[in-house]
Amino acid sequence: MSLFSIFTVAGSAMTAQNQRLNVVASNLANADSAMSSNGEPYKAKQVIFMSTQPEAGIHASGANGTHGVKVASVIEDQSPMKMVYEPSHPMANKEGFLTMPNVNVVEEMVDMISASRSYQNNVDMMNTAKTLLLKTLTIGQ
C-alpha cells in the first residue's frame, strides 16, 4: 500500500461514518414520534457497510490495490415496534395501545459514539500520513 492510498481509504471511511452518524441522528430524532411522514410509526434504520473494489493496477510490491469502505445500504430494523398504553392518545388502537418506533436510544447513543470515534481515528490517520509525507520531502535538504 502506498502512502497516498491511505488518503483514499481514510476518506472513504470518513464518508461512510458520516452517513452512519446521519442515520443515528435520524433515529434519535424520531425515537418519540408516534407517526412518520408516511403516516406509519417510524422504523429505526441501520447502515450496512461493504468493502470497495481495489484501485486499478498493481503496485510495485506486486500486491493488489487497496480497499476502502462504503455504505452498501440503509435498511429498516426488523425488531418489533414498542407498544405503549396511552388510551387518551388520538392514535391509540381499540385496546388503548399506541405503536411507537422501535428505536433503542441507548443502542443509538453507543452507535453514535462508535461512529464519531471511528471518524476521528480516520482524521488522525490522514494527519499522520500528511506529516510523514511532508517529512519525507525534507529528507533531501
Rank of each mutant, 00 (worst) to 15 (best):
F97H: 07
Y119T: 08
V110P: 06
N93G: 12
V123I: 09
M14S: 11
T136K: 04
S5H: 15
D77F: 04
P41S: 14
G57V: 11
S114T: 03
A129S: 08
Q120N: 07
A29W: 15
V24P: 15
A10K: 11
L21W: 14
L3A: 10
S116H: 01
A10W: 04
T136N: 11
D124F: 01
H67L: 04
S36G: 12
Q120V: 09
G62C: 11
G62D: 01
A13T: 13
D111L: 06
D124M: 05
V105D: 05
M91G: 05
N102E: 02
V84C: 03
N30A: 14
I6H: 04
K135M: 03
A92F: 10
S2F: 09
M50V: 04
L133A: 07
S114C: 09
A56W: 05
L28C: 15
M126C: 11
M14G: 14
S73D: 00
S5K: 09
V23K: 14
N122P: 07
A115Y: 00
I113A: 10
G39Q: 08
R117K: 09
M81C: 05
N64S: 06
H67M: 09
S33H: 13
V9D: 09
N38M: 12
R20M: 11
K130I: 00
N93W: 10
V84L: 10
M100E: 14
G62Q: 01
S26L: 14
A115F: 02
M125F: 14
T136S: 15
E107M: 08
K82T: 12
A13N: 15
M50K: 04
N121H: 06
K43F: 08
T136M: 10
L134E: 10
A16H: 08
P80Q: 00
A92L: 07
S33N: 14
E108H: 09
N18E: 13
G39K: 10
L132H: 02
P54H: 03
F97V: 13
V84Y: 00
A72N: 06
L134F: 13
I58K: 10
S36I: 08
Q78T: 15
M91C: 00
V106R: 05
V74G: 00
G57S: 10
F4A: 13
P87H: 05
N22Q: 15
M81S: 03
Q78M: 00
G65L: 03
T99E: 12
A72F: 00
I58G: 01
V47K: 11
A34S: 14
Q17S: 06
V106D: 07
S116T: 02
A34Q: 04
L21V: 14
S26W: 10
S33C: 14
M35W: 15
A63S: 07
H89Y: 01
M112W: 02
P80K: 02
K70W: 04
L133T: 02
M1N: 09
E76L: 07
F49T: 13
M112V: 07
H67V: 13
S12R: 11
H67E: 00
G62E: 03
S26M: 13
H67Q: 15
M112A: 08
Y85E: 03
N38D: 13
M109Y: 12
A92V: 07
M1W: 10
